[in-house]
Amino acid sequence: MSTSQSHLEPVGGQSLTRQERQILDHHACLAGLPAGPRERLIREQLGMSPTRYFQTLNALLDSVQALEYAPVTINRLRRVREDNRRKYW
């Protein structure tokens, strides 16, 4: 496995990585911003591309560890995901 993917390993495993915790901690601040400023802050504060951020965040939605760490955030995002599935699929 490449080192660029190594930060995803703990999802579904034993514990969240520092980067995964940062993503969950920053999500509330980033969620309401327009795309341009949000993408800039993701790059500056988290040191990752917006695509990787959203891929990781999506993977965290199915993680028990993420739910234990940030239950309000995870449950809200799960509801949004389910609403979108009903609306578009």
Score class of each variant (00 low, 15 high):
48 M>A: 05
35 A>R: 12
40 R>Y: 15
16 L>F: 05
39 E>T: 01
34 P>H: 13
56 T>L: 03
34 P>M: 09
18 R>V: 09
9 E>F: 08
55 Q>E: 10
27 H>K: 10
12 G>R: 01
22 Q>L: 06
45 Q>V: 05
50 P>K: 01
45 Q>K: 12
59 A>I: 08
65 Q>L: 02
61 L>Q: 15
29 C>S: 08
23 I>T: 05
48 M>W: 08
58 N>T: 10
20 E>D: 06
29 C>L: 13
22 Q>V: 05
10 P>E: 13
20 E>S: 03
49 S>V: 00
5 Q>A: 10
29 C>K: 15
26 H>S: 03
55 Q>P: 01
44 E>K: 07
35 A>W: 11
37 P>L: 02
14 Q>F: 11
42 I>D: 01
24 L>V: 05
56 T>N: 05
39 E>H: 02
47 G>E: 14
29 C>T: 14
24 L>D: 01
48 M>Q: 09
28 A>M: 06
13 G>Y: 13
19 Q>H: 09
13 G>D: 13
67 L>K: 08
13 G>V: 12
33 L>T: 11
23 I>A: 01
42 I>P: 00
6 S>V: 12
66 A>S: 11
43 R>N: 12
15 S>T: 15
63 S>D: 14
68 E>C: 06
39 E>C: 02
51 T>A: 02
22 Q>G: 01
14 Q>K: 06
